[in-house]
Amino acid sequence: MAITDKIYVKNHRQLASQLETSIPKGAFSGATLDLLFTGEGLSKLDSTTRDRVLDFAEDFLDCDCDQNPYCGCPERKFVAYLLELRAQGLGPDAIVDVMTDDYMVYAYTGDVRSFLDTAIRRIESVEALADVEGDAEMAEKARQAKRALSG
């Protein structure tokens, strides 16, 4: 299961009440993406919530794909965001705090920890394959990425 399947809308019930509609708890579920992409009902939200929802939409739903928001770009952008937070030295608890502050979404710390561990293992695989293939440049890039994620 992808990490984006484990990202949830904070204050989900309160948000649904303000919008006067039911929405899934998952931030990247189809109905939630539809709501954010079309912007329907956002005027019903309080200003703080609306600002964070709009920030999320601008940062993750902005692409030129024909199938936007179902093109995979929002999920890839969010994964890049998580990896960047880790590269800045934040641990799983801090990453959850920042994503909650930035976008009103959250994940369980264990899920973030598992995602980061899996990312490191994949980078190690890339590094090993690059070494086998004699691609010193790619192996070095993988080593640098692994150091950034390992803290």
Rank of each mutant, 00 (worst) to 15 (best):
E140Q: 14
E84D: 14
L35W: 00
I3W: 02
T4A: 03
P24D: 15
A136N: 09
E58S: 10
G91A: 07
F115L: 06
A80W: 03
D135A: 02
G91C: 04
P92I: 02
F56D: 00
D55R: 12
Q88C: 10
K6H: 12
R113E: 04
A57R: 13
T100A: 14
M99T: 03
M1N: 11
V9I: 15
L15N: 01
S22A: 11
D51I: 04
T100S: 15
D51N: 13
T109E: 11
K44C: 13
C63T: 03
A128M: 06
D135W: 04
A136F: 11
A130M: 02
M104F: 09
D102N: 02
D101C: 02
R13W: 12
L42H: 09
G30V: 07
Q67M: 15
K77H: 05
A136R: 13
D55W: 01
E137N: 10
A94T: 09
V132C: 12
V9M: 15
R143P: 02
A142S: 10
D59Y: 08
D5L: 11
D117E: 10
E84R: 13
I7K: 11
R113Y: 01
P92Y: 01
I7D: 08
Y106C: 07
A16R: 13
M1Y: 12
D117L: 07
R52F: 05
S114D: 12
G89V: 09
T118A: 15
D66A: 12
L149I: 06
K10L: 10
Y70Q: 05
A87M: 14
L15C: 03
D55F: 01
T4C: 11
Y70K: 09
